[in-house]
Amino acid sequence: MTMKRRMFLKGSLAAGTVGVAVGAGLLTPGSVLAAWPKAAMEAKTVDDALKGVGMSGFAQSDDIKIKAPDIAENGAVVPVTVSTSMTGVTNMAIVIAKNGTPLSSTYDLGKGAQAYISTRVKMGKTSDVMAIVKAGGKVLANKKEVKVTIGGCGG
């Protein structure tokens, strides 16, 4: 019995140490997620955000379709669908122009992936939702205004 208790204590101690290491930021997931564009995600302007993910200097294109509500009652959940008929799309991004950090998400498309993304985003206030698409080295974008009645960022 005493032996078992010893082992139990040792086991829980070891587990505790790992937990503390994670908590203290020693084992940050940053190293695992090396590709995560931290600077771009934290950028405060649309230009800086797009520069950070190599998507600056876009041209307007109506070939990009953005499906989003005209008026969103709840800014915390705004469904957005981006699709395009263009071929050779390698990267896509969804930018909420007037959010504190405009870049909401980027998508790296692998072999076979179609240029279609659907997700739900948070919006602080009425803003343009921009979809940026990189196809064959060219950067194209389209936008759609979504009116927000109740903001979804902050409480």
């Binding site: 995600m41 669908t81 909420i96 998400s105 998508y107 498309l109 992936a113 985003v121 948070k122």
Partner: peptide, 18 residues
């Protein structure tokens, strides 16, 4: 097939379709 990089601006209980 796909890698999505998200920030905190994606809604709670996120949904993704591709």
């Amino acid at each position: 097939v796909l890698t999505a990089n998200w920030s905190g601006a994606i809604s709670k209980n996120p949904y993704l379709s591709f």
